[in-house]
């Protein structure tokens, strides 16, 4: 079971998480006790500079986004990485005075863990905002699908098809890119299956609307049946898009909690 739910986050955090985990084990087993830690000024300064750059770019991202949840959730992550960076700087200064300092070792572990945790919070917050972008497109399609109910002429149908096409293409592209990003195989498959169903149902819906329009204009029988058929296809498509929206919001942790 993957710990990180996207490949990007996994590729960034997995290696450093393993390193820190190993360091913690060494610390707990007393392997670092009684040993002098050398001058860490250079690697700590590199972390400090990287934190400063990340927070600067992060703040720019928060300023430019219209996503209110990201504006709210991102700043605590900045504080977490900045505080952790300060701990590392303090540890480095303490070790300069005493390479055997025990509190300095604790600060190093706390600081490293804090950087990992803060970076994880930041990346997850950003990823959630990216998911919300995809969901907005999906909801736009859901909304436009309901317009099918007011299509009564062939002209309307042409306009409807023309308007629906680009949105569908955009949603399909976004879902394809997202499923490739996910580390959880089941979630990937669920997105692919639902998107394929939506794509298969699109011409069926257009055809159902066409039959409804033709039946209605000929003033013969079968209008009710055509309407039922149109509604059935519309409801099936809506259900699949709602399923896509649900799966997009799942993370590996949801699955773990459920298990």
């Amino acid at each position: 079971m993957p710990v990180f739910h996207t490949k990007t986050i996994e590729s960034i955090l997995e290696p450093v998480a393993q390193q820190i985990s190993h360091l913690v084990i060494m610390h707990e087993e007393g392997e670092v006790d009684g040993k002098a830690i050398p001058d860490l000024t250079v690697p700590v300064a590199a972390v400090q500079a990287a934190v400063s750059n990340l927070v600067r770019v992060g703040k720019e991202t928060v300023q430019t986004t219209e996503d209110q949840l990201m504006k709210r959730d991102m700043p605590p992550a900045f504080i977490k990485v900045e505080n952790s960076s300060s701990k590392l700087v303090q540890a480095s200064q303490m070790l300069k005075a005493d390479p055997y300092s025990v509190p300095a070792r604790d600060y190093l572990i706390d600081g490293s863990r804090g950087i990992l945790s803060g970076t994880s919070d930041l990346l997850l917050t950003f990823d959630e905002a990216e998911v919300r972008k995809i969901i907005r497109v999906c909801k736009g399609i859901l909304e436009y699908l309901t317009v099918a109910e007011v299509v009564e002429t062939m002209e309307d149908l042409i306009t409807y098809t023309k308007n629906l096409g680009p949105g569908m293409t955009k949603m399909s592209k976004m879902i394809e890119e997202r499923q490739q990003e996910l580390t959880h195989q089941e979630h990937r498959q669920m997105l692919v299956n639902s998107m394929n169903t939506v794509k298969e149902l699109l011409p069926v819906l257009i055809s159902a609307i066409k039959i409804f329009v033709t039946t209605k204009s000929s003033r013969g029988g079968g209008t009710e049946e055509a309407e039922r058929n149109r509604r059935f296809t519309f409801e099936k498509m809506s259900a699949e898009i709602n399923e896509i929206i649900r799966v997009l919001q799942l993370t590996t942790w949801d699955e773990d909690a459920w298990a």
Partner: peptide
């Protein structure tokens, strides 16, 4: 800015990894 933020996060993770390595290498050595 979003992509740049992800790039900077990657740089920070690498710098943290290097730091942890430096601490560990000494302990192992």
């Amino acid at each position: 800015p979003g992509r740049e933020m992800v790039r900077q996060a990657r740089i920070l993770a690498q710098a943290t990894s290097d730091l942890v390595n430096a601490i560990k290498m000494d302990a192992e050595g």
